[in-house]
Simulated assay, not measured.
Amino acid sequence: MARDGLSNDQVRDLLLRTRRIAVVGASDKPGRPSNGVFNFLLGRGYTAIPVNPALGGRSVHGMQSVASLEDAAPLDMVDVFRRSEDAGAVVDEAIRLGAKSVWLQLGIWDDAAAERARAAGVTIVMDRCPVIEWGPLGLPNRIPAGA
């Protein structure tokens, strides 16, 4: 089992029931992992919102960026591209805004923030990437509408 304590079935179900994802730390630079993951999520049928105040409202793969997580609400999932030491504040904000889940990307974990999320009924994924998980989980090319 992964560091986050979730089984493959739980991660698969999470990705299938999620529709709207705020990507914190999204970049408009093609070489950045957050840019590639953002494009992957759009290509799989998610509504993805880039969250990054440094983008100044510029678009990422045709989606206008927003400066704050609150501007991206309502939230199904918050996908976090921030250092581990900064992730807890994003998790707390996601909890406050009523997100159903938080996904911390590869190399990112915060066990204390994960406990706060779980206590609030928020599913938390840590140290994983949806691009890497997708194929091994047997997920379709696009998420089915209404799944």
Rank of each mutant, 00 (worst) to 15 (best):
M126G: 01
W103H: 01
G57T: 09
L15V: 08
V60R: 05
L104C: 04
R17H: 07
A22C: 04
A48K: 05
G107W: 10
I49M: 06
D110Y: 04
A119H: 12
F38V: 08
V23K: 15
N35L: 02
A22K: 08
A73E: 12
A54L: 10
V37Q: 05
D71F: 02
R20Q: 07
I124Y: 11
R17M: 14
Q64V: 05
G56F: 03
V125I: 11
I108M: 11
I49L: 12
G43I: 10
A112I: 00
N35W: 12
A87R: 00
T123M: 09
R128N: 06
I108S: 04
V80E: 05
P136I: 06
S34G: 05
E85F: 03
S65V: 01
A67G: 08
P50N: 12
N52R: 03
K29N: 13
H61Y: 13
N35Y: 14
V60K: 03
R44G: 15
D110G: 07
I108F: 00
A54W: 04
V91N: 07
R44D: 02
R83E: 00
A99L: 12
I143S: 00
G36L: 11
P50H: 11
W109A: 05
A114W: 04
V91D: 01
A99E: 15
E115I: 11
W103T: 10
V66R: 06
G107I: 00
R17V: 01
T18W: 00
A120Y: 09
L69K: 00
M77C: 11
L16T: 07
V23R: 13
Q105T: 07
R58M: 03
I49N: 09
D127Q: 11
R44W: 05
N35Q: 10
G135Q: 15
I95K: 13
T47A: 03
S59V: 00
V60Q: 09
L42C: 04
G135Y: 07
I132S: 02
G56V: 03
D86V: 14
L104S: 00
N39V: 13
V66Y: 06
P30D: 15
I108P: 07
R82G: 01
S101Q: 10
S68W: 06
G36Y: 08
D92I: 03
G36C: 14
R83G: 10
A72K: 00
K100G: 15
M126W: 06
Q105K: 13
M63A: 09
V91C: 00
Q64P: 07
